[in-house]
Amino acid sequence: MSLRDRQRADTRQRIQRQALRLFTDRGYDATTVNGVAAAAGVSAMTVYRNFPTKEDLVLYDDFDQLTAATIAELPATGSLTDRIGRTVVTILDLVATTEHDLLLARLRLMISTPALQARHLDSQFRLQEAFVNAIGPSQEYGARAAASAVLGVTHTALLRWAADDGEPDLADLFREAFTATFGHAP
Rank of each mutant, 00 (worst) to 15 (best):
T77G: 03
T24G: 11
D164A: 13
F23V: 11
R49V: 11
E129G: 07
H100Q: 15
N50P: 02
P137D: 15
L94D: 14
L158G: 00
V95G: 09
L170V: 02
D25W: 07
R108A: 09
T77F: 01
L66D: 07
A68I: 04
T46D: 14
A38W: 10
R175P: 01
G41C: 08
S2I: 01
D93G: 14
R83E: 01
D93E: 14
S123I: 12
L80P: 02
F131N: 01
F174E: 01
A115L: 09
Y48W: 15
V47D: 12
A115M: 05
R17T: 08
E140F: 08
L57V: 08
R144N: 12
L170R: 00
S138K: 10
E73Y: 03
T181V: 00
T70I: 06
F174V: 02
T77L: 07
V132M: 06
A30I: 04
A39M: 09
S43G: 15
P52R: 15
G152I: 05
G78N: 06
A30K: 12
G85H: 04
P75K: 04
F125G: 01
R126A: 11
Q139G: 04
Q128C: 13
I135M: 03
F182R: 00
L92F: 15
S138D: 15
S112T: 10
H184G: 02
A115Y: 05
T87A: 05
G166S: 09
A147Y: 12
A146W: 11
A96N: 12
T31P: 07
G183P: 00
G166A: 07
L102G: 11
P137T: 09
E167M: 09
D164M: 10
H155Y: 08
H100M: 14
L59F: 05
R119L: 06
T90F: 04
V58P: 13
G35P: 06
F131E: 02
R49Q: 13
L59G: 13
G27V: 11
A105L: 11
L127I: 09
R26A: 14
F174H: 00
D82C: 05
S112D: 15
A105G: 13
L151E: 03
Q65S: 13
T181A: 08
Q117F: 13
G78Y: 01
R8M: 03
T81K: 04
A130E: 12
A105Q: 15
Q7G: 00
Y60H: 14
T179R: 03
T113S: 06
L57M: 05
M45Q: 14
L74V: 00
T53G: 10
I84M: 00
F51M: 07
P75I: 11
A147L: 06
D122F: 07
N133R: 15
L107N: 11
T24H: 14
V153W: 06
Q128H: 08
S2H: 05
R126E: 10
Q16P: 05
E129V: 15
R17N: 06
D82M: 05
G136P: 04
Y141W: 09
L173S: 00
F182H: 03
P52A: 15
A68R: 12
A145N: 08
A147S: 14
W161H: 05
A134S: 11
